Measured scan of single mutants.
Amino acid sequence: MEVRTIKVFTTVDNINLHTQVVDMSMTYGQQFGPTYLDGADVTKIKPHNSHEGKTFYVLPNDDTLRVEAFEYYHTTDPSFLGRYMSALNHTKKWKYPQVNGLTSIKWADNNCYLATALLTLQQIELKFNPPALQDAYYRARAGEAANFCALILAYCNKTVGELGDVRETMSYLFQHANLDSCKRVLNVVCKTCGQQQTTLKGVEAVMYMGTLSYEQFKKGVQIPCTCGKQATKYLVQQESPFVMMSAPPAQYELKHGTFTCASEYTGNYQCGHYKHITSKETLYCIDGALLTKSSEYKGPITDVFYKENSYTTTIK
């Protein structure tokens, strides 16, 4: 009895394709271990004539594949690729409408935090270190965002349907971005203890939790000093293409032309909904596939993004 075979390709990165001759009487799992086709788990399936010449994702289970996976995804987590594939199996079914010149995501599976993050990423200057993220990001900007969303979920250790947080998501993504040249110098002034300067680099240099107003941050924000008295913390120097200011959701007025974009969060910790506000020729609110415009805006804002380049204080 002759062994019926077909020729397929296996890959971990969709760049390096490895030619395989597979036995049609055995499952993919018996031949390769966990195997995925377009995100779908085909591990328990036997090869079919229609699979001839198709590319299958496999887990990096030998040295060659491990090197290829690390170079593309910059992670050695053995569960990463499987999590990416199972997320992709959902995100490829989502709709990605162009809204006001940006790629958004039609609401499904509690994905409003991903839509808000995706919209924000198209408006701030950011370059990702893992080629996987950078490639998928370019495709997302062009309207094909399924891979990018699935990668975000995998890097953030999230599953489809789980509630997510924009600030946490951005923080994970910033860790995989090139923020080497970003720098922030802060000064804390206390009447009792004097003053202390701190220099922050990388992710810490672009994120701040405690106030939404970048102007206020430049002037000074009140913080408790270690001595128990009130101290003032203010920005001395900022070198970065953008800054992200966050605070627990509270009524906040966004003035046209003073910011790049913002995240609105309605609801409580267990259950809520994100919308995205962007400042173009007027203010726009993007909620999944829905767009509304207004000249002014007041609502429960939790993150505001500002364009920056270089700032030095005039406070002496």
Rank of each mutant, 00 (worst) to 15 (best):
E264N: 00
Y311F: 12
K54C: 13
E308G: 05
Q270S: 15
S25K: 07
Q196W: 10
L37V: 10
T192V: 10
L151W: 03
L200N: 02
E168P: 07
G272A: 00
Y155N: 07
V160K: 08
L254M: 05
E215M: 02
Q251R: 01
T169R: 03
R141T: 10
K46H: 08
T211Q: 03
Y252S: 08
Y72H: 12
M26D: 12
K233T: 11
V206P: 04
Q30V: 10
G53M: 13
D287R: 01
N49T: 13
N111Y: 05
N14Q: 11
T282H: 11
L17S: 12
A108Y: 05
T313L: 14
H90G: 13
L17P: 00
Q216H: 10
Q238V: 01
A177Q: 04
H276A: 03
T266I: 11
K255M: 09
T292E: 12
S263H: 15
I6K: 11
A231W: 02
K316R: 15
P131Y: 06
P34S: 12
C112P: 02
Y269F: 13
F80I: 03
K280N: 09
G257P: 03
T232G: 02
A146I: 01
S263M: 10
W94F: 08
F242I: 01
L153T: 02
I277K: 00
T211V: 08
A136V: 01
N100Q: 14
M26N: 13
T43S: 12
A247R: 13
L65M: 14
A136K: 02
P97H: 06
D63R: 02
N89D: 10
A250R: 10
T226N: 10
F174D: 01
A142K: 14
E308N: 05
L291Y: 15
D41K: 07
I223N: 02
I301A: 00
E125R: 04
N178A: 11
K255R: 11
V67D: 13
L133W: 02
V160Q: 07
L119S: 02
E162W: 00
N111M: 08
R141M: 12
W94A: 06
K298V: 13
T27Q: 11
T55C: 10
D41W: 02
D165I: 00
N129L: 06
S310A: 10
H51P: 02
V67L: 15
A145Y: 03
A117V: 15
